[in-house]
Design a protein around this nucleic acid. Structure first.
Length: 566
RNA sequence: GCAGGUGUAGCUCAGCUGGAUAGAGCAUCGGUCUUCGGAACCGAGGGCCAUAGGUUCGAAUCCUAUCACCUGUACCA
């Protein structure tokens, strides 16, 4: 709509001037659908904004898009002409082609194979899922990938505890979810270690035997990592997390070492006195950073060099996004520069999508102190609350259906909760009151969608069919009372673009909330099926359907489904 | 020390490519209460937008300094 008005003005006024116009919403006490101001032009025209406004108002007088343009101080309040306005609103595109022909790889999750997923992963997942969907809706060719952290000291501890204390138990025999079973072994190591610090001395030998592919320890490693991955996969399915491909550290480290030695040979890296391979980032003001340990074993950077190079071979990406907490910002800077110096790709091809930690009211989550909020437990708890509510509201629904809806609401609640705060901010998670089902929440948005669906259901119309034809309603039937909703609908493309450009799903969250509020408020005041005339009813149905389609699209980006009923 | 982040209503947060009277939710108080399904809607109170300067016709938004908290800072992940 804004663009159409600008186009019209361009035909009748200087294009340079038109480019400097600013649109803004009309504030509460005033009427109109959209405001324009002229402050930016005062200098070059040598006139007051009021004078310019008068001039523009004159030009707009014959504009078929507008009913009128009313001057209010330095602003011009525009009143859209009903038909043109709703024609635009109802034809609003759900997706864009902003990132057409761009291949973008998004890495997220990054589970460790010694323990189950926790609340921190959930924020990562909420972001990973939504950013992937967001960029896809903006036209990008998106590849979702995982990195499996399946080697390291923590795993050696877990294996030691299992070998020493579990007497050949398995997840089946213990009747535990397999990743939880392994996680318990890790905790067991920590408790036993407190009793007997000598345990620690056995770890290097386990590491050595693993690397030498010793049948016992290498075999145990395979078994235990598979257990964790099996359990983690269950949680992924439940959360709607999926990947085109998973890369394992254990598959990448040899190649990473080769890259380190190669870099050393080519003078990109250098060797320290004790034999470690380092990269000099002095010119970037980042000091020095190790690429390979003095004992020749790989560290994170070693693996990631190879992993990102492999991914480029696999996908020829234009951009590689790592969704990882902000405490690793420095690390990613060095990774990207290292890849550039090695001649793999320039640093513009990489992006660290960082986000703040999820803390508890009394501080950080610490696995050693057992203060970690387990993902499975949290989801069970939320699902249980939702289930109780559903069974009182819809007791006639079959059990399986109730369960499905409870799961949808559970996912809506935590995903929304973790996405409503800007990624760069730390979230303090209070289990008692954090995730709510009333007010500005995921379930609120789902509920708004369910209500729209139920209107169509009541009328006995299939919404999708109805929306696929434009002949069902007359544009002239719309009135001023539908306008605020139309204004909101027309904002969607801009929100999608800005959100995709900033890789920030929070903008979508905020917008959907406003859209749903606008809708809720509308239908509390105006009846759709009970509209004064048949024509108005049809028009409102079309508008309701449009609101639904945007709500559905936006929630789909956030990884949230709208239930059939709730 | 240096680097990055954060500071907006009692609480949790939007708003930050500068624009009219700073917005939501929760909590508190009051209303809608024979409804297209109330997980809803309407209203009230509640703000020196951390502090101090600066740029601008105009600053929560941009710049500088200060304070507070968080994170990182050469072979952890």
């Amino acid at each position: 709509m804004e663009q159409l008005i600008l186009d019209y003005l361009t035909q009748n006024w200087s294009a340079d001037h038109v480019a400097k116009l600013n649109f803004s919403p009309v504030p509460k006490g005033q009427s109109g659908d959209l405001a324009v101001n002229f402050f930016a032009l005062t200098k070059e025209l040598g006139k007051s904004p009021i004078e310019i406004g008068k001039e523009v108002a004159e030009i707009l007088q014959d504009c078929p898009l507008l009913e009128k343009a009313e001057q209010s101080g330095p602003y011009l309040n525009l009143f859209f002409s009903i038909e043109k306005f709703f024609e635009q609103a109802l034809s609003t595109q759900l997706e864009s082609d902003l990132l057409e022909n761009k291949t973008i790889v998004v890495e997220y999750s990054g589970p460790n194979t010694n323990k189950p997923l926790h609340l921190g992963h959930m924020r990562n997942h909420a972001l990973g899922i939504s950013v992937s969907n967001l960029l896809e809706s903006a036209g990008g060719n998106i590849k979702r990938v995982n990195i499996i952290n399946d080697k390291g000291l923590a795993l050696a501890k877990t294996m030691l505890a299992y070998d020493r204390f579990q007497n050949g138990e398995t997840p089946e025999s213990a009747d535990k979810k397999p990743d939880q079973f392994v996680g318990d072994c890790y905790v067991q190591y920590e408790t036993e270690y407190k009793k007997n610090p000598e345990l620690e001395k056995e770890l290097p030998e386990i590491m050595r035997l693993w690397e030498a592919q010793d049948p016992k320890w290498y075999g145990l490693w395979r078994t235990m990592t598979d257990w964790v991955l099996e359990g983690v996969e269950q949680t992924y399915t439940r959360q709607g997390v999926w990947f085109d491909k998973a890369y394992k550290e254990s598959d990448m480290y040899e190649e990473g070492k080769a890259m380190a030695y190669d870099g050393l040979e080519r003078g990109v890296f250098y060797k320290s006195e004790d034999g470690a391979i380092l990269i000099d980032l002095e010119e970037e003001d980042l000091g020095q950073k190790a690429v390979l340990r003095a004992d020749g074993t790989a560290i994170y950077l070693t693996n990631d060099l190879a992993t990102d190079r492999k991914r480029y071979e696999d996908y020829k990406y234009d951009l590689m996004i790592h969704v990882v907490a902000d405490e690793q910002a420095y690390y990613f800077k060095t990774l990207f520069i290292s890849l550039e110096k090695l001649g793999v790709l320039t640093r513009e091809h990489f992006h660290h999508l960082s986000y703040g930690l999820v803390n508890l009211p009394d501080g950080r989550m610490k696995s050693r102190e057992g203060t970690v909020v387990d993902a499975d437990n949290l989801m069970d708890e939320l699902s249980g609350i939702a289930k109780a509510e559903i069974s009182t509201r819809n007791p006639e629904l079959p059990e399986a259906e109730q369960h499905k809806i409870a799961e949808q609401i559970m996912n809506g609640a935590w995903k929304f909760f973790l996405l409503r705060t800007s990624p760069n901010k730390t979230i303090t998670f209070d289990a008692k009151k954090s995730i709510d089902f009333q007010g500005a929440t995921g379930p609120y948005l789902q509920y708004a969608g369910v209500r729209i669906k139920s209107i169509f259901e009541k009328e006995g119309i299939d919404m999708t069919d109805y929306m696929s034809q434009t002949s069902n309603y007359k544009l002239s039937a719309f009135t001023d009372s539908e306008k605020p909703l139309g204004v909101k609908i027309l904002e969607w493309p801009k929100v999608l673009t800005r959100s995709a450009e900033g890789k920030n799903p929070t903008l979508i969250v905020t917008y959907l909330l406003e859209l749903a509020q606008s809708w809720s408020s509308f239908y509390a005041e105006n009846s759709v099926l009970g509209a004064e005339t048949e024509e108005l009813k049809q028009a409102r149905l079309a508008l309701a359907g449009k609101v639904y389609s945007i709500l559905e699209k936006g929630l789909e980006i956030l990884g949230i489904e709208i239930p059939e009923r709730m």
